[in-house]
Design a protein around this nucleic acid. Structure first.
Length: 289
RNA sequence: GGGUCGGUACCGAAGCGGUCAAACGGGGCAGACUGUAAAUCUGCUGGGCUCCGCCCUACGGAGGUUCAAAUCCUUCCCGGCCCA
């Protein structure tokens, strides 16, 4: 059984600093659980650890993809689990650090086994249908295709309804049935360490950090990514910091508004993160700092 | 000083005699989330309860009209604009 520390906390709560402290005491390697730091070129806006920090400790799952790559929490979980075991087998201590709740869940608990990738054509077709007809017709289709999820998704969350449909149309299997097929995670024993920061302090840190990002060149970074030819509609750029900066670059938002929007959206994001983390903590295994 | 428009909950903003504790948006808070997750979605947001209903305090202040007022009248205070 591999004892694994999971350093979790909201954005700007100090996860990186904490993990570097750990590195001074133990021979660790870090597995990042961050859905945005996986992308190359998105550096300032995702608050990646600095180059010198990355030199001190080996970091995995940072800068592993181009901004237009398709990726998913499931893929991440499988790959990162393998990496984690490899680290342990090499005699080092794996430490998971990140704030993406679903990524942490995928890595530590596993989602389900999905071998065939979803058919992109089907996904696009459903997406167009959503644009054209709204969510209701799609939701009604789900009733025929996957009744358990139809009942579960009564809020008609478009993302989830689409997911269930595209899965069925791609594989011919109900997503709710596929869930039964769990991947194994029985070689690790996660211990969650939650970096708890008082809400007002956290918000203050967020506000400052956003300001700092702007000074550090978030605009230039965004512009250069766009100049490489990456579409502003890419999932990777639908990220707090970048999406507002893109609007600003298009001249549709003032500088002050852009900054305060990024700050606000980052606070919202932090709140959602905390909801995930509380859940982990309540459900099991909290270790206090 | 005269005229005029306006003062509504944390903010913006509807309502213009009863069905109003007050639409809607923002913000805040809480939550859901098994492959796009920094995404997407949901709920709550005057106070107190014996909490699927009841009570209290509320729509700038004070009076008044009315069975009944955020909505009408008087007056006062405070803002915007126009004229002096």
């Amino acid at each position: 059984m591999i004892d694994t520390i999971v350093v979790c906390g909201a954005t700007a709560s100090g996860k990186t600093a904490y993990s570097l402290q750990l590195a001074e005491k133990q021979d660790i390697e870090i597995i990042s659980a961050d859905s945005r730091q996986v992308y190359k070129f998105l550096t300032i806006g995702t608050a990646k650890p600095s180059a010198s920090e990355m030199q001190k400790v080996k970091h995995h799952y940072i800068d592993i993809l181009m901004p237009d790559a398709n990726y998913s929490a499931g893929e991440y979980g499988e790959q990162a689990y393998a990496t984690l075991i490899d680290i342990a087998e090499r005699g080092k201590t794996p430490v998971i650090v990140g704030g993406s709740g679903l990524y942490i869940k995928s890595l530590c608990e596993g989602l389900f086994k999905e071998d065939t990738p979803v058919d992109v054509g089907i996904r696009n077709k459903l997406e167009m249908e959503l644009q054209a007809n709204g969510i209701d017709t799609l939701y009604n289709k789900l009733k025929e295709v996957d009744a358990p999820l139809y009942n579960l998704y009564s809020d008609r969350n478009p993302r989830r309804v689409l997911r269930a449909l595209e899965y069925y149309y791609s594989n011919g299997i109900r997503l709710s049935d596929a869930y039964a097929n769990k991947p194994s995670r029985d070689r690790i024993k996660p211990r969650y360490v939650f970096i708890d920061v008082a809400r007002d302090v956290l918000y203050d840190k967020i506000n400052r950090r956003v300001m700092q990002m702007w000074e550090d060149g978030l605009v230039d970074e965004t512009e250069s990514v766009l100049n490489m030819g990456y579409s502003p509609t890419l999932n990777s750029l639908n990220t707090v910091g970048y999406k507002e900066t893109i609007v600003y670059l298009n001249g549709d938002m003032s500088l002050d508004t852009a900054i305060s929007e990024i700050q606000k959206n980052t606070r919202h994001y932090a709140k959602r993160q905390l909801t995930w983390l509380r859940k982990f903590i309540l459900e099991e295994k909290l270790s206090e700092l």
